[in-house]
Nucleic acid binder design. Structure first.
Length: 668
RNA sequence: GGGCGCGUAGCUCAAACGGAUAGAGCACCGGAUUUCUAAUCCGGUGGUUGCAGGUUCGAUUCCUGCCGCGCCUACCA
């Protein structure tokens, strides 16, 4: 609703400027006044125009206000401060439209969107860093779906890399486990925990004797031969750990549609197809000298053609074209002919956009308890399968450390002449989750003096140093369960457990979403386990309160607000106008913003805005709840009005939380 | 060295496109409702937005320089 009116206002202003000043403005900046009593929208437009028109901002603002004419949905326009134009909406009309849940039509762009997230190495348990990735990614998927887009969710599995090889080495060379024994172990409930410890031991084993690293190289090589025994062991391990990851993420209601694996990119020769095109387009160059002699290299993203070219004339340019200074080279194909991961990533991304001319085989891999199927890549797939890839836009949820690699893939696409694809390729970059020194100490790690002084310490899978995802979820559930047990002893144990789980997930997902992406999260149990203040449970609790009002009143809140909107529009007008109504109107206005916030979150790839919105709604509601007794309100129409306020806020808060993947228990 | 990012209250973080008095949560201190359950609410303490310049009617936001911190910069993935 808020978004819709804002667009209409922007359109009217643009039209006015065209008519009266012959000005074309691309974007009309519209913000919100610091207080609701000043209006719903503010335009700082006159300050900008003052320069262009060489007149005082206030004068221009006066002119705009006088000449804008009536705009549907708006009551009036006023000049305020040094030249702001504040717009006031017809509150009752907005409230009626919101209560009856009118959804003004707007265009949804065509084409499918592919979101890639999680992409955890399938060699050990998922940790809190992976949780941030998956929660950001899953929330972004939900945002896109809320906006009406069709989305495929992919989780890329690097099942032939060093990390899997290391665990294979652990089993075959340190533990000397047989294939049958590994198979047995892999059926244990938390096989990924076993691998977590083993992986750390392998790293130590390499450190003990650098000779041991040769075993890694051999193993890595052996994994690539699909027919061999080592490859079979690697597959056994990676598939078992992958299943564990799917289970862990499913606890948070995070699901995937397709799991493309590196093994298939290898065995279906995706790279060969990509390599040919890259050579042909001149994106890759064969280096004949220097440290990268014998490699196929590409210009690293973010590096520019050397400064000599700037000053020099056209003659120097052609020589420049075929050369990249050594420091700016990214090796794509090694001198021994093997391709690095960036190369495979380029091929994979050509596939995503339908530009490779090859496809995966597909096998049904995992059925979620809700019946949703998750598919996996295969060299020989099933006949009937959904169509993946060939999409219009992609988002890759990958941490900031990989931004250079991501940009290199984008540059490769551009170099191949697929500028359109490059434009629709978004690296959804976010910062890592680290541990506070206190948290690290709690986990039993001895810290150097240097470490103690840091604000955070990076986790290390190699050292087995970190907080496992399932452990954190377990701790959250235990902690929430204790609270629920003491608050609701009359409920059955399984019911209390269900509630505690909802609260735990709410706390965890909110925690991971409330920080902006570029902020490193310094993880601390105390803050992550908090259920008070700016947390998921705070927002859930607001909904519980709203629900309980309706339960006591014996009214179903869903149909209630739609009905009341039609019958009570005059009451809305009466209770929403005037000074005294500003506080409640602020609540309505915030509730009206959900779609606007969703759009903003998508446009900026920043789910934190959504978290902020949920918190703000809950906070305003709690204040309102405290100030206005509703069921005891003697004036019947006012009571209906207050009830509809609760119903609308409840509905919008539930929606907002749902986009964040948070559900609300019946009681708390 | 080069690239990317960060520096805001005691702590953890907000403030999209430059805008009206820089806001929350935690912590600390003091209060509130025999009610629609207090996982709540209200009040208080707390700021030279790293430093120095510049652009602008207006800078936490843009530009330059400096200081401090993190990540990336492998024929690893």
């Amino acid at each position: 609703m808020y978004r819709y009116l804002q667009r209409r206002l922007a359109g009217a202003v643009r039209e006015f400027l065209r008519r009266n000043y012959s000005l074309e403005l691309e974007t009309v900046v519209i913000e919100q006044p610091p207080k609701v009593e000043l209006g719903e929208y503010a335009l700082p437009l006159a300050f900008d125009l003052a320069k262009k028109l060489r007149r005082a901002p206030r004068k221009i603002a006066d002119e705009v206000v006088a000449g804008l004419g009536p705009v549907e949905g708006f009551e009036k326009f006023e000049v305020a401060g040094a030249g702001y134009i504040n717009a006031r909406v017809d509150r009752a009309a907005v409230a009626v439209a919101l209560a009856s849940d009118e959804k003004p039509k707007h265009d949804v762009p065509d084409g499918k969107i592919l979101v890639e997230h999680s992409s955890i190495n399938p060699n050990k348990a998922a940790h809190i860093g992976h949780l941030r990735n998956a929660i950001l990614g899953d929330t972004f998927v939900r945002l896109l779906e809320y906006a009406g887009r069709e989305v495929d969710v992919q989780n890329y599995i690097d099942n032939t890399g060093v990390q899997v090889a290391d665990v294979v080495v652990g089993f075959t060379h340190i533990e000397k486990t047989s294939g049958a024994e590994i198979e047995q172990l892999s059926r244990q409930p938390r096989f990924d925990y076993y691998c977590w410890d083993l992986y750390a031991r392998v790293s130590q084993w390499y450190e003990q004797d650098k000779q041991n690293l040769q075993v890694r190289a051999q193993t890595l090589h052996a994994i690539e031969d699909a027919a061999g025994e080592t490859a079979a062991i690697a597959d056994l391990i990676s598939v078992a750990v992958l299943r564990r990851h799917l289970e862990t993420m499913d606890r948070l209601e995070i699901e995937y549609d397709f799991l493309p694996r590196e093994s298939e990119i290898l065995h279906l020769h995706f790279w060969d197809a990509a390599f040919a095109k890259l050579k042909e387009a001149g994106v890759l160059l064969f280096e004949t000298q220097g440290k990268n002699k014998g490699c196929w290299v590409m210009r690293r993203a973010g590096t520019s053609k050397s400064e000599i070219a700037e000053g020099a004339e056209a003659g120097a340019e052609s020589a420049e074209k075929d050369e990249i200074s050594e420091d700016d080279q990214k090796v794509i194909v090694r001198s021994n002919g093997t391709v690095g991961y960036v190369g495979k990533d380029i091929a994979y991304h050509m596939w995503k956009f339908g530009l490779l001319g090859r496809d995966f085989g597909y096998r049904n891999f995992y059925r979620y308890p809700n019946g949703h199927d998750c598919w996996i890549s295969a060299t020989e797939g099933e006949k009937n399968h959904p169509h993946f890839g060939d999409v219009a836009e992609i988002y890759n949820v990958i941490d900031a450390r990989q931004s250079e690699a991501q940009n290199t893939v984008i540059e490769a696409l551009r170099g191949l002449g697929h500028g359109e694809a490059a434009e629709h390729y978004t690296h959804f970059s976010y910062e890592m989750v680290a541990l506070t020194p206190r948290c690290a100490a709690e986990l039993g790690y001895t810290l150097s003096e240097e470490d103690k002084a840091r604000s955070y310490i990076e986790v290390s899978g190699r050292r087995g140093f970190g907080v496992k995802a399932d452990d954190l979820i377990d701790a959250l559930i235990t902690s929430a369960k204790k609270e629920v047990d003491s608050r609701h002893p009359q409920l059955g144990d399984s019911e209390r457990r269900t509630i505690a789980t909802q609260i735990a997930i709410g706390a965890l997902r909110y925690f991971m979403l409330k920080y902006t992406k570029q902020s490193v999260i310094a993880f601390d149990f105390k803050e992550a386990l908090s259920f008070e203040g700016e947390t998921g449970p705070y927002a859930q609790y607001a909904v519980v309160r709203a629900t309980s009002i309706f339960r006591k009143a014996g009214i179903d809140p869903e149909p209630f607000c739609k009905d009341v909107a039609g019958n009570l529009s005059s009451a809305f007008a009466q209770h929403l106008t005037g000074e005294a109504a500003n506080e409640i109107w602020g609540l309505w206005l915030t509730a009206a913003k959900t779609s606007y916030i969703v759009d903003q979150s998508i446009a900026t790839t920043e789910p934190a805005y959504l978290a902020k919105h949920a918190f703000q709604l809950a906070q305003f509601f709690n204040t309102f709840y405290h100030r206005h007794p509703i069921l005891s309100e003697p004036d019947e129409t006012r009571k209906q009005f207050l009830l509809s306020t609760v119903a609308v806020v409840r509905r919008e808060l539930i929606r907002t939380l749902a986009v964040m993947g948070i559900t609300v228990p019946p009681v708390m």
